[in-house]
């Protein structure tokens, strides 16, 4: 949310601050819209189920290929040992059951993403909060943000109202990159959809390429989740969790000296 439309509360009284009060450290502000909060927690459940059932499906044939075809005698670019039971759904081997979960929650994942993208287009979330400006794309700005992250110096006060550019890159990468990729490559593995939408095969270079990209996109989402949770812990887990549950976020106080 931007300073312009964020609702701030005075840190002392807890009452909503006057709209012309400048946001400053310690102030409670409305950070996340309801649609963002709902989608976030739905995704936590959905992506966990998709990952764990996906690992069980992978276990049925833990080899990855490029191109249209690929089986045991063909060259696999990656072969992994089977994932352990604590990482899979169900925990003991059942390809059939994993597919039941995976293919049902695939609808939840895809429809929720579609709904969230449409909602975010309409309410300005993409334009105001996620759009990366020309100034932010400048190498000097990107580099400063990298250095700030490396020093664990996070924005405070009014600056914390907005996502920093690395955050925007991560969120945009997931929203417009990894999630559409994981969904489309998943659809590309369907022989029924190969008949209906053959361009998907051309887009990803064949069914086995799509299967490899599906796995890599899932790995990318796991990496995102690890970094995401790490950043939440470093930035103050209680404040961050509250903001994603209730929407209210306490702006970190400005550093007095450095």
């Amino acid at each position: 949310m931007t300073p312009a439309d964020s609702l701030a509360r005075d840190p002392a009284s807890g009452q909503p601050a006057r709209s012309d009060a400048a946001p400053r450290g310690g102030m409670l502000v409305r950070r996340h819209r309801l649609s963002t909060r709902l989608w976030h927690w739905l995704n936590l459940v959905t992506l966990t189920i998709m990952l764990m059932s996906g690992l069980m499906i992978f276990n049925a044939h833990p080899r990855l290929y490029w191109g249209a075809y690929g089986a045991n005698r063909d060259h696999a670019w990656l072969q992994l040992p089977r994932f352990p039971g604590w990482a899979t759904l169900p925990s003991s081997y059942s390809l059939a059951d994993a597919r039941i979960w995976h293919l049902a929650f695939a609808w939840v994942l895809a429809l929720a993403l579609l709904g969230y993208l449409l909602r975010s287009l309409r309410n300005g979330h993409i334009r105001r909060d996620l759009h990366i400006t020309a100034a932010e794309w400048r190498p000097a700005h990107l580099w400063r943000d990298v250095v700030d992250h490396a020093r664990l110096r996070f924005p405070a006060g009014a600056a914390a109202l907005r996502y920093n550019v690395l955050q925007k890159l991560a969120y945009c990468g997931v929203l417009f990159g990894l999630l559409p990729l994981v969904i489309l490559t998943g659809l590309t593995m369907s022989p029924g959809l190969n008949a209906a939408l053959p361009w998907l095969l051309d887009l990803f270079g064949g069914r086995q390429s799509a299967r490899s990209l599906h796995f890599l996109a899932a790995a990318g989402l796991v990496l995102f989740a690890l970094v995401h949770v790490t950043m939440v812990v470093l930035a103050g887990p209680v404040n961050e969790l509250r903001s994603m549950i209730t929407g209210w976020y306490r702006l970190p106080r400005e550093r007095s000296h450095d």
Binding site: I100, W101, L103, A104, A106, G192, A195, A196, L201
Partner: peptide
């Protein structure tokens, strides 16, 4: 409940694909 998705797969693929040929 989870398996009811199978009907959605059948219906959506028939709707999208009709009598389309496999590649």
């Amino acid at each position: 409940l989870l398996q009811s998705a199978e009907q959605a797969h059948l219906a959506s693929q028939r709707l999208l694909g009709g009598q389309a040929l496999a590649p």
